[in-house]
Computed example of a mutant assay.
Amino acid sequence: MTTLTPCLWFDTEAQEAADFYLTVFPNSRITETTETTYYGEAGPRPADMVLTVEFELDGHPFTALNGGPEFSFTMAVSFQIDCTDQAEVDRYWDALTADGGQESMCGWLEDKYGLSWQVVPRRLLELLADPDPGRAQRVLAAMTPMRKIVITELEAAADAA
């Protein structure tokens, strides 16, 4: 089976970012196979600087790369976090917006490294899939101006007459 592994390009923060993400997501670790590689005397970055960090977030493989300042993240690519309830939404939202992260709209945020995340409660998707198009449209209208998604407000909008 082929494994798809997102490679996250950082300037110099690959190890720091990987360590941070390990504190945010359960069942996460630096992988034991390759773990961390370093630049050598051949460059192009300083010798002994971290080149790559292989890690897993809740069992999903990632690579963090210190590639240099040439590229940065955009909201065109994001990672969606499927949350079971409001407490989980709040926990991820607070952790990922801490220390310089930025809230965006409709459950999107950028963490302190500029990586975009969508913090999505399952209940939102259930309400949007409601067979009553009026309920689904009221939920969509309520969600659109939100930053962090608030489930009780979505449910109230769905039930509004």
Rank of each mutant, 00 (worst) to 15 (best):
Met1Trp: 11
Met1Ile: 08
Pro6Ser: 12
Trp9Ala: 08
Phe10Val: 03
Phe10Trp: 03
Phe10Gln: 07
Asp11Glu: 14
Ala14Gln: 04
Ala18Lys: 06
Asp19Ser: 11
Phe25Ala: 11
Phe25Thr: 14
Asn27Ser: 07
Arg29Ala: 13
Arg29Gly: 03
Arg29Thr: 12
Thr31Ser: 02
Thr33Ala: 08
Thr37Lys: 02
Glu41Trp: 05
Ala42Glu: 15
Arg45His: 12
Ala47Cys: 10
Val50Thr: 14
Phe55Leu: 15
Leu57Met: 13
His60Ala: 08
Pro61Tyr: 15
Thr63Phe: 15
Asn66Tyr: 07
Glu70Met: 09
Ser72Met: 05
Ser72Ile: 09
Met75Cys: 12
Met75Ser: 08
Val77Ser: 14
Phe79Thr: 14
Gln80Trp: 06
Thr84Gly: 10
Asp85Leu: 05
Asp90Glu: 15
Tyr92Met: 08
Trp93Pro: 00
Ala95Cys: 06
Leu96Pro: 00
Gly107Ser: 04
Gly107Met: 05
Tyr113Arg: 04
Tyr113Lys: 07
Trp117Pro: 01
Trp117Ala: 02
Gln118Glu: 09
Val120Pro: 00
Pro121Tyr: 06
Leu125Phe: 10
Leu125Gln: 10
Ala129Pro: 01
Pro131Gly: 04
Pro131Cys: 02
Asp132Gln: 09
Gly134Asp: 14
Val139Tyr: 03
Leu140Cys: 00
Ala141Asn: 08
Ala141Gly: 04
Thr144Val: 10
Thr152Trp: 03
Glu153Met: 06
Asp159Cys: 04
Asp159Asn: 13
